[in-house]
């Protein structure tokens, strides 16, 4: 499949690969895919930003290339790197050949001239290690390029991304400008650790994914954890909603809900009681202080609506 037909089609295609989303999300994803615009996805941790990119790749039947950003990430890690050791090895091996080549030269400048003709032997794609960005650009078939946690990278790297995002080309000084053989669908995710620059934002469609509304969360639980009894799933989602209402350091998100559902199945429980909440706290809360707070309120949290 080379794109989605309509918003509804997008929603259905994503649902078919197990990603349930609101019409808003589907609309923006559809527009990004239809107009080859990069997509900047923001939202709290664990609401399925990365998952969205995976689902889009799967539903479009495209391979996904992932670039994880971190502080200090540079072009050598993101774009390409000359494979120096290999270059060195090759020059050592062909040393004799080089000597033969320049042996017949009458003058120094002629020798240099002869070597210069063979320049491409040293700087060619043979010696280049393609990193995710170059891979995404040069792939013959369109791919989905996920640039994860772009807010963790340095401003310099962000500026470097601009050429890629607006023109889908990258420049390698020794080889020239590489245009994309096929335009990749770029998904950038951000946890709002810092704000992205206006220039970057202008080139992207923006999508904010929030904690899902209860019905949607229920649908997600149903599709991802099919073994869970309907009543328990409802009860659990309602309890999760209440936990998010507490003043927590890190609110549990969808991934925690799913872990919790799986934990309840593993424990073979079919009702939610305060004791069960306390026993499975480790799945929901990732901080001691949060866990303590939820434990104190466990009766309220586990109350059946």
């Amino acid at each position: 499949m080379n794109g989605f037909d309509s918003v509804e089609d997008t929603r259905r295609a994503l649902e078919a690969v197990g990603y349930i989303c609101t019409p808003q999300v589907a609309t923006v994803v559809f527009l990004a895919a239809a107009t080859d615009k990069p997509l900047l996805v923001e939202g709290p941790a664990g609401v399925g930003k990365t998952e969205l990119a995976k689902a889009v790749a799967q539903s479009l039947g495209r391979p996904m290339i992932r670039l994880q950003c971190y502080e200090g990430l540079d072009e050598a890690k993101a774009l390409y790197e000359w494979e120096y050791a290999k270059q060195l090895l090759y020059t050592q091996i062909v040393k004799e050949k080089v000597r033969e080549l320049i042996g017949a030269a009458a003058s120094l400048s002629e020798a240099v001239e002869r070597i210069a003709v063979e320049e491409s032997a040293f700087f060619s794609e043979r010696f280049m290690l393609a990193r995710p960005l170059l891979k995404a650009i040069t792939a013959p078939d369109p791919v989905v390029l996920l640039i994860d946690e772009v807010d963790k990278s340095d401003p310099e790297f962000e500026a470097f991304l601009l050429e890629l995002l607006s023109d889908f080309q990258v420049t390698i000084p020794e080889l020239g400008t590489r245009r994309a053989a096929s335009i990749p669908l770029v998904v950038l995710t951000s946890n709002s650790f810092r704000d992205m620059s206006d220039a970057l934002k202008r080139r992207c469609l923006h999508l904010y994914i929030d904690y899902p509304p209860p019905e949607q969360e229920l649908a997600i639980v149903r599709s991802k954890v099919p073994g869970l009894a309907e009543a328990l799933a409802r009860h659990m989602v309602a309890a999760m909603e209440r936990i998010r209402g507490l003043e927590l350091k890190k609110k549990p998100s969808i991934s925690e809900t799913l872990d919790w559902a799986r934990a309840l199945i593993a424990l073979q429980l079919d009702t939610l009681s305060p004791e069960v909440v306390e026993a499975t706290l480790g799945v929901i809360c990732k901080h001691r202080e949060d866990a303590r707070q939820v434990a104190q309120q466990s009766a309220k949290v586990a109350a059946s609506s």
């Binding site: 309509s6 918003v7 019409p23 808003q24 609309t27 923006v28 559809f30 527009l31 900047l40 923001e42 709002s192 704000d195 992205m196 934002k201 202008r202 992207c204 469609l205 923006h206 999508l207």
Partner: peptide, 20 residues
């Protein structure tokens, strides 16, 4: 998009104009 579907229209404008 289908401009008569408000949710789509809204998403279109928001994705393009409000970027944080």
């Amino acid at each position: 998009i289908d401009p008569l579907d408000e949710s789509q229209f809204f998403s279109l404008l928001r994705a393009n104009m409000a970027k944080s």
